[in-house]
Nucleic acid binder design. Structure first.
Lengths: 105, 105
DNA sequence: CTCTCATATAACAAAAAAGTTATATAACCT
DNA sequence: AGGTTATATAACTTTTTTGTTATATGAGAG
């Protein structure tokens, strides 16, 4: 059971096509931040801020590996069930992989 | 299956505590617009605009009865299943009924 | 026809969101 | 140490959202 303030805050974070696409991409597993920078037509700092919002909403966990940061869905978030269900009902977005060759995305 | 643009638009509309509370109230059945005006601490035009956003997202249907307009969840919306499930997982908000006595809410 | 009530729309102000460029931080590479 | 790459943060601008007050519309009541 979610409280109104809680849930509306999370839905607001989910209510953005860039962030929703990012999450859809992470549905498949951990994603390197660089893969988002490559995929979207916005600047790297903009990507970084979107990721921060998802992190601050508790939806993501990060893992540093060398100079790369990998993000994944936070399965322990109270909203994880909601997120996964939404993503399951979301059309697949074509994956992109213009990432650096040594980036272990 | 929802498209990203579609779903993110709907989630943005849902991502507001006033609108989410309105929907929760409509979960119980049709609600007179006046009941929202009474319940929330914002002006009548603000309420009207929130309702318009929900309507434009296809989530509501309206019915005019005399001078009152009654809103209800649109069961034929492709997002109706999503909405009902969200509402089912949303804590109840205490109902208010400071409405006009002859308002058939 | 005019008054009142419920609701919607218009015009505008304030606040929040989302983008940009410039710069900082952290890690790797030579 | 100094250069390069990945990511984050700061400062700022533009756009969007949300509210307000004033006004319009539509329906019932006298």
């Amino acid at each position: 059971m979610y409280a109104v303030e809680e849930l509306s805050k999370v839905l607001k974070v989910l209510g953005d096509s860039t962030r929703l696409t990012m999450l859809k991409q992470m549905e498949a597993g951990e994603q390197c931040a660089c893969s988002f920078v490559d995929r979207f037509d916005i600047s790297q700092p903009a990507i970084s801020r979107h990721l921060k919002m998802l992190r601050q909403a508790g939806l993501l966990l990060e893992r540093r590996d060398k100079q790369w940061i990998h993000y994944r869905l936070n399965e322990t978030s109270p909203f994880y069930p909601l997120v996964t269900e939404l993503l399951a009902n979301l059309e697949t977005v074509e994956p992109s992989c213009d990432c650096e060759p040594d980036c272990a995305m």
